[in-house]
Amino acid sequence: MTSCTHRSAIHTVTPKTFGCEECLEIGQAWFHLRLCRTCGHVGCCDQSIGRHATAHFHETEHPIIEGYDPPEGWGWCFIDEIMVDLPDQTPQNGPIPRYY
């Protein structure tokens, strides 16, 4: 059985925005949100046009994201390509706009 080797990158974070940070800046719609559990960046999923959560991983190498709309309780490691059990769920700071 494969396990994630990047669990030390999972931190308690505060989401930086109420939606995908990059989509909000450019007025683009998103489908689902992902939260970086290293720094709190909020990006859109790979089903969204921008794929900003994956782009954030490639820019920063922060490996772990959390499903975040509403908090879904699952994690994903980009490096190991495996689901990750998170120690907690990140609460929402306020209403997250829906764009799908």
Rank of each mutant, 00 (worst) to 15 (best):
T5H: 13
H6Y: 02
R7C: 10
S8C: 01
I10F: 04
I10C: 07
H11W: 02
H11S: 14
V13K: 09
K16T: 15
T17W: 04
F18W: 04
F18P: 06
F18D: 15
C20T: 00
E25K: 15
G27Q: 11
G27P: 05
Q28P: 01
Q28F: 08
Q28C: 11
A29G: 08
F31C: 13
F31H: 13
F31E: 14
R34N: 15
R34V: 01
C36F: 00
R37W: 00
G40E: 08
G40Y: 06
G40M: 08
V42Y: 01
G43P: 03
G43H: 09
C44S: 15
C44M: 07
D46F: 06
D46N: 14
Q47F: 14
I49Q: 15
I49P: 11
G50N: 11
G50Y: 01
G50L: 11
G50I: 02
R51I: 05
R51H: 12
R51S: 15
A53I: 07
T54R: 14
T54S: 14
A55Y: 05
A55H: 13
A55M: 08
H56W: 03
F57L: 07
E59N: 13
E59W: 00
E61S: 14
E61W: 00
H62S: 05
P63K: 11
I65G: 00
Y68N: 09
Y68A: 09
Y68F: 15
D69E: 10
D69T: 06
D69F: 03
P71A: 13
P71T: 12
G73M: 04
G73D: 05
W74G: 05
W74E: 08
G75W: 00
W76N: 01
W76D: 00
C77Y: 00
F78M: 01
I79M: 03
D80Q: 01
D80M: 05
E81M: 12
E81P: 02
E81L: 09
M83I: 10
M83F: 11
P87L: 11
P87E: 10
D88G: 03
Q92H: 06
Q92S: 15
N93I: 10
P95I: 03
P95C: 02
R98L: 10
